[in-house]
Simulated scan of single mutants.
Amino acid sequence: MIDLTHIRREYLKDGLRAKDLPVDPMALFELWMSQAADANLSDPTAMVVATVDDQGQPWQRIVLLKRFDEHGFVFFTNLGSRKATQLKHNSHISLLFPWHMLERQVAVTGVAQPLSTAEVVSYFMHRPKDSQIAAWVSKQSSPLSTRGVLEAKFLEMKQKFSKGEVPVPSFWGGYRVRASHIEFWQGGANRLHDRFLYTRQEATSAWEIERLAP
């Protein structure tokens, strides 16, 4: 066994107080995302996405957030991927933004709703052309014998779409996560971290706020 108990540090960068919380959690999320981007963090939009398979086994992977507003958090994926297959059977989902350098994290739980065709096309047409082609190449989450097979397919499709626009694959789409809970975590000295949980009240769509023990 490798002992890691000696790896420790104090969290002293900031604090989070109830008096500073906005009524709408998306306002605080927007502020924190902006600060993460301004701090030049590597991949500030990266989030851990957790889904559950039909055996009840959770799976996690890192995905990039592409949009967010009062309606939810948006990401895109191959619709044949493991995450998409699992969301067909169980639309409940969890997101985690791990902004370690700012001693912050945001955890979101909710339901993933498929995006409209118009939303998918709008985003796809703004991707770099090589990224559009890559969407055609990978049968995401399926077994692959060698990397060479993937690279050969990419070159084949690049030749095929060398002229004109790249169409949106029928097997590519996206999801909007409608949050039911959003938790903000700010590291604190002596492990006395600040945690605030926003819970959506379905009857009114208003948010209830409560402080959680660290």
Rank of each mutant, 00 (worst) to 15 (best):
P114A: 08
V120N: 12
F76R: 04
T77P: 01
R82A: 11
I133K: 03
K83T: 10
T117Y: 07
L144G: 01
V111E: 14
H92W: 00
I133Q: 06
P98S: 09
K160E: 12
R82Y: 01
W99G: 03
K153D: 12
R147V: 02
I133H: 03
K158T: 14
P143M: 06
K129Q: 09
H126Q: 15
L96H: 12
S142D: 06
A118K: 13
E156N: 03
V74S: 09
R82E: 08
S91D: 13
E156T: 08
T109I: 10
E119R: 09
V120A: 08
S116Q: 14
R127K: 15
A107C: 09
T85L: 10
S81I: 05
M101I: 04
T117H: 12
W136A: 01
L144V: 15
F73H: 07
T109A: 12
K160M: 11
V120G: 02
F75L: 10
L102T: 02
T85W: 00
K158I: 00
S116D: 12
F73N: 05
K139D: 12
L144Y: 07
W99E: 04
F76M: 10
T77D: 02
S91H: 13
F124N: 04
F124R: 08
H89T: 10
E119K: 12
H89R: 13
S138C: 04
L144T: 11
F73K: 08
L144S: 01
R127L: 15
I93Y: 07
H100N: 09
Y123T: 09
E119V: 01
V149L: 14
H126W: 01
Q86N: 15
T109P: 00
V121A: 14
V108Q: 07
S94E: 12
G148F: 02
S116K: 14
Q159L: 06
P98R: 05
L87P: 02
W99F: 06
S138G: 03
Y123D: 10
S81K: 11
S91R: 11
S141G: 08
G80M: 06
F73V: 08
R104Q: 13
M157A: 06
H100C: 00
A118L: 13
V121H: 10
A107W: 06
K160T: 12
M125L: 08
K139G: 00
F154Q: 10
T146C: 08
Q159F: 01
Q140L: 01
Q132E: 05
I93G: 02
E119W: 04
A152I: 00
V149I: 11
E156H: 11
K160V: 10
F154S: 01
H126P: 00
A107S: 14
L115S: 02
S142E: 14
V111F: 07
L102V: 09
G80H: 13
Y123P: 02
E103N: 08
F124W: 03
K83W: 04
P143V: 05
S122H: 15
L96E: 00
F97W: 09
H92Y: 04
S122C: 03
K153V: 00
M125P: 00
M101P: 01
F75K: 04
E103S: 10
H126L: 14
I133S: 03
S142P: 00
M125T: 13
H100D: 10
A107M: 11
A112G: 08
A135K: 05
V108R: 05
N90S: 05
V121T: 13
V149R: 11
S91L: 03
V106R: 08
F75M: 07
L79R: 11
I133D: 04
T77R: 08
G110M: 09
V108P: 05
S91G: 02
S91K: 10
L96V: 12
A152R: 14
